[in-house]
Design a protein around this nucleic acid. Structure first.
Lengths: 236, 236
DNA sequence: CATCCGCCGATTCTACAGAATCGCTTGTGA
DNA sequence: TCACAAGCGATTCTGTAGAATCGGCGGATG
């Protein structure tokens, strides 16, 4: 077992818990930690070259995020990430993103939206060439749009909740990606770009209802896609 | 400072963190810990007659719930609880409760709903007599209805999120109650009971749209009431 | 005004106590 | 004699305490 980055040597005091949380999140997201796996504090302590105190604290934080469950005197286990969980989280996310986009309607600078629309259309048009870079671009644009909406909603708490859900959703996506390979992903990419364009256009015309509908479709189609990818790969 | 219940003597090993979390939540809810107050682990450790380790862990959990903020190397501060925060949390809660009630529509046993309706109407009719017992009854019925809906939504994750929000909302309610006194509360009580009845009746006829609208009104009226109570009492 | 020093408290480590689990042993019945 | 179950002991891991270390802030000092 190799020592990884948030070690006592590299990470300054006061940020270690956070660093470990991030690292463990990534581990779960990328399938290095599988559902149902028991997390032993001592092992993790060795792995990260810290004592088990900050590890424990990181586990408590992760339990708060909802990635693991803690049983008193029995330690931590990684939560199941199946199609059911994807659907459930997406359902919640849908409700909140729709609320956010309704609130944000008419409160985002048109210039910013226009710029986003241009880039999205460019991405949607360019089919198939240079996979990885496109994936990165797509994710960046996705983040930008959703962040823009969350900011413009004017509701700090909503923004914070959406962030948490985005994190969880990314977990699912990365797990599915892992299993699934990238082969059928590019089609989804352009599909997603189109969905984003519809949302942006609704925002540009300040049509809250249309924006909400578009967002709902967007999340639902993501849900269907990724949950299918998960069931297919885990052979339930 | 007196030693309080989750002490090493009374609370079994493995449940202390949880007990401390609950106790601190209650402290914040009931105004014994005020917004902006700095929480010193050593002091809390003495107060609860445990070492600072479980205290720290409880603070991390509380930060996850969103009641306090942790700054690296600078400790924990109780978050502001003003009208703005009430509105924000309620907005999120509204979105989720409406989603839940839509999902739950047609999936709750009519017998249970009928029983609830009867009790609600009894409560709504009985104006003014015997305050405290009525408040307790009202809260119990409120909990029962919302739990029923969350259960029937069939979405475990949604249920969990709603629970968290209910907790936060209770925080606000109790703070406002503290400041405000109980004088104008009984009117709100019957109002709330009527709102609940409307929701139950929509559920009985399996009218998802009506149920969602009723729920939206219910949460919004709660939001207006409590945020007003907060602004009035804290003189912002 | 800039710098340094010392204190307070947050963070982390080490050590130990209690809980859970696993496997062994021993006793019992066929 | 063999199969099986119950009890016991050892091991492993979690939870808590107390000590050591480090960072930040405020006051003293030049």
């Amino acid at each position: 077992m190799t020592v990884v980055s948030p070690s006592s040597a590299t990470t300054p005091r006061g940020l270690r818990r956070e660093a470990i949380v991030e690292s463990l999140l990534a581990d779960v997201f990328q399938g290095r930690l599988k559902a149902g796996q028991h997390l032993v504090t001592q092992d993790l302590a060795e792995r990260y070259a810290v004592s088990h105190t900050p590890i424990r604290e990181a586990l408590i934080a992760l339990a708060g995020i909802g990635i693991i469950t803690l049983a008193p005197n029995r330690g931590a286990v990684v939560k199941q990430v199946g199609a059911k969980e994807v659907r459930e989280v997406c359902q919640v996310r849908k409700a909140l993103e729709c609320e956010a986009v309704r609130l944000a309607c008419g409160r985002i600078s048109p210039a910013e939206l226009q710029a986003l629309a241009v880039e999205l259309k460019k991405l949607a048009g360019r089919t198939g060439a240079n996979g990885l870079r496109q994936v990165a671009k797509a994710r960046e644009l996705d983040s930008r749009l959703h962040d823009l909406i969350a900011d413009a909603s004017g509701n700090q708490f909503l923004k914070q909740e959406l962030n948490r859900l985005k994190l969880l959703f990314r977990a699912f996506r990365d797990v599915a990606w892992e299993h699934d390979g990238a082969h059928n992903d590019f089609h989804r990419l352009t599909e997603e770009a189109y969905e984003h364009v519809v949302i942006v256009e609704a925002l540009l015309t300040s049509d809250a209802k249309a924006a909400s509908r578009a967002m709902s479709r967007h999340i639902r189609s993501g849900m269907v896609y990724w949950s299918r990818a998960l069931t297919a790969s885990t052979k339930l």
